[in-house]
């Protein structure tokens, strides 16, 4: 099958949806002739022109807020934030406006708004360019949160996000932009809210997402050589979470590790652990262990960042812990 980079898959999804629906409009910083800081809009300005691919000033609150007004009035804005770290500047418009407007107004309007934003560390980008804020936004009712782990999923899920009539945050991992993977040439979409088993296994479930999927699969390979059979479950959508898939896997394996890149307290991993505690505690044959970043800002120096962010070895250690197994 044809191979595409993750950012190429995103650009292809955008182009296809723009051709499909003239009300799909992109705006953000440097997305026009510049092609986007991560080349996700490369070639789109040339193809669709300045009224479909709109360069904005550095005004996150302003242009994300404009997305709210445009989405309420017939446009399907797909907004790129150059770094997801700056979503804090726009968070009023996402949390108090986009997420609430339909509900607060008794369902009289729709909010087909997509905000794409690169997340993640492992790049020595420092404390203000390495964040992953999915937990903060999953907390808020009225927002869908998607974090694809492969080019195939980036394309299929972005197309679904653009067709969704609700606010969707689409977090792309910076380390994945250069990942190459199979992407069919024919049209497809992937459903929002459905997890994917990236590796079936019988001994332990590793619930993970985004860049940590690759680290979890690598850990599973290491453990397989030691006779431990891990199931790697990629959430793909953080909110709404595929609870059935998580519970089904845990009921099968009886053991749970949750691996996420971002901070620990009140996070996605907390939610997964709580879900299993509430709905499947009788199936657990050991403790739940979470692999997360340490609760400090992501530091700059590579040696410090490596210490703070979770590693493949942390996942291996976590699996050994839940299985009450001595590491080899």
């Amino acid at each position: 099958m044809r191979q595409l980079f993750y950012n190429q898959a995103i650009a292809e999804a955008l182009a296809e949806e723009m051709r499909r629906d003239q009300n799909v409009i992109l705006w953000g910083i440097d997305i026009g002739p510049y092609g986007g800081a991560n080349a996700c809009t490369k070639g789109l300005y040339e193809q669709f022109g300045p009224s479909r691919v709109i360069d904005m000033p550095v005004s996150e609150l302003g242009y994300v807020g404009m997305g709210v007004g445009a989405a309420a009035t017939g446009i399907r804005p797909v907004i790129e934030l150059q770094f997801s770290d700056w979503i804090t500047l726009a968070s009023e418009m996402i949390i108090n406006q986009a997420a609430k407007m339909r509900y607060m107004f008794g369902g009289v309007l729709q909010m087909p708004l997509v905000i794409r934003a690169p997340v993640g560390g492992y790049l020595s980008a420092g404390a203000q360019h390495s964040n992953s804020f999915e937990s903060m936004f999953s907390f808020v009712p009225g927002i869908k949160v998607i974090m694809p782990s492969t080019p195939y999923e980036a394309k299929g899920l972005l197309k679904s996000a653009i067709r969704d009539n609700n606010t969707v945050l689409f977090f792309e991992h910076k380390k994945l932009y250069a990942m190459k993977g199979e992407v069919p040439e024919e049209e497809y979409t992937l459903p929002i809210g459905k997890a994917d088993i990236k590796r079936p296994g019988s001994d332990v479930t590793i619930v993970t997402y985004a860049y940590m999927v690759g680290k979890s699969l690598a850990a599973a390979e290491t453990l397989a050589r030691q006779g431990v059979d891990c199931e790697v479950l990629d959430l793909r959508t953080i909110d709404p979470m595929d609870r059935e898939a998580v519970l089904a896997s845990v009921k099968k394996t009886g053991h749970l590790v949750v691996a996420q890149e971002t901070w620990r307290d009140c996070s996605v991993s907390s939610e997964v652990a709580a879900l299993v505690a509430e709905e499947a505690v009788d199936y657990l044959d050991g403790p739940v262990v979470r692999v997360t970043a340490k609760d400090v800002p992501i530091p700059f120096s590579p040696v410090l960042e490596e210490y703070v962010l979770p590693k493949e070895a942390d996942i291996v250690a976590a699996v050994n812990k839940v299985l009450n197994r001595v590491s080899v």
Binding site: G62, M66, G69, A72, T73
Partner: peptide, 14 residues
Amino acid sequence: IPIATGAGMSAMLR
């Protein structure tokens, strides 16, 4: 204010 501005952008685009 930004919501109105977005509605204005929407009217212009449409």
